[in-house]
Design a protein around this nucleic acid. Structure first.
Length: 281
DNA sequence: ATTTATGTTTACAG
DNA sequence: CCTGTAAACATAAA
């Protein structure tokens, strides 16, 4: 289940192989996984591959874009002459013959290479949008957490206007784009801030520390190629390694790396939060 | 076997 | 408005 670093990793990998490729056809195996007219996307070249929030943007030569959101269990797997490039939620489909039973979309290129979109739970999607649709898609999104637009002043201002816990605010995509459960938990631990505290109770200094911590853990995640925490089969180059350096996420019952006390787990907004009750007052 | 949780996001009810 | 819950769906772990 990819977060920003894993999506960034996939976008970077795909960029290397997809640029200038011409799409021959798009086959939609599960209709709700594709939004727009898939048949209209053929004979166009890939101009660029980028990421915004947790969405991959494949810009096309006709001015439109293919957007990919992996949600919980999506994967993109590019296959060309035996080499396999991609990533996403780690399941057996990583090594399976494709298409597999979870394959929802198949994008075929004119050089016989293929991009498979696999998505076990079918929350994810691919959509084709024109420029106007693209603008609308991102209109309500806050600045990317790793962009320069995210400053202490910005976050302090956002915190004042709401009464939620700090963890829920930083995971709100209208405030900060791209902060998911793993990195929210780990950044709060790095900054030694209790996830339950009301956002507006944080001092200027604490917000400064939190912004720096968020950028730090997310950038570390990108360096590690993302995280692959659940049952994964280790396939060279397809899984990330952030799980080896993570601070608290999914480490309930294990000792805190800072003070040795036991990491505990609680619920916030229906999501699990992991933290150290000694370090994070 | 049955229940519970899952790295996401949105819609809807209160 | 804000806030909490369910829901989209499939699988593994408890």
């Amino acid at each position: 289940m990819p977060e920003l670093p894993e999506v960034e990793t996939i976008a970077r990998r795909l960029k290397k192989v997809l640029l200038k490729k011409t799409i021959a056809s798009i086959a939609v195996l599960r209709s709700k996984s594709f939004i727009g007219d898939a048949k209209s996307v053929s004979g166009v070249q890939v101009d660029s591959v980028q990421r915004r929030a947790k969405i991959i943007i494949i810009s096309l030569s006709d001015g439109r874009s293919l957007l990919v959101h992996l949600k919980m269990t999506g994967q993109l797997m590019y296959i060309h002459e035996g080499q396999r490039i991609g990533g996403g939620h780690p399941t057996a489909d990583f090594v399976a013959t494709l298409p597999s039973k979870h394959t929802r979309i198949i994008i075929a290129f004119t050089d016989e290479s293929t991009l498979f979109f696999n998505d076990m739970r079918v929350f994810g999607w691919i959509k084709v949008l024109d420029t106007e649709g693209l603008v609308r898609e991102f209109a309500d999104l806050g600045p990317d957490i790793i962009s320069k637009d995210v400053t202490v002043e910005y976050l302090v201002a956002k915190l004042q206007s709401r009464s939620q816990s700090i963890k829920q605010v930083i995971m709100d995509n209208q405030v900060l784009a791209g902060v998911g459960n793993i990195y929210a938990s780990d950044a709060l631990h790095l900054a030694k801030i209790n996830p339950s505290r009301e956002g507006k109770s944080l001092s200027h200094e604490e917000v400064l520390d939190l912004v720096a911590s968020l950028k730090r853990v997310i950038n570390l995640g990108i360096e590690m190629g993302g995280a692959s925490i659940q049952n994964y089969r280790n396939v060279d180059g397809l899984v990330g390694h952030y799980q080896d350096v993570r601070r608290v996420y999914a480490r309930e019952g294990e000792p805190c790396g800072e003070c040795g006390s036991i990491i505990v787990r609680m619920k916030q907004g229906g999501r699990s939060t992991f933290y150290c009750s000694v370090c994070q007052l």
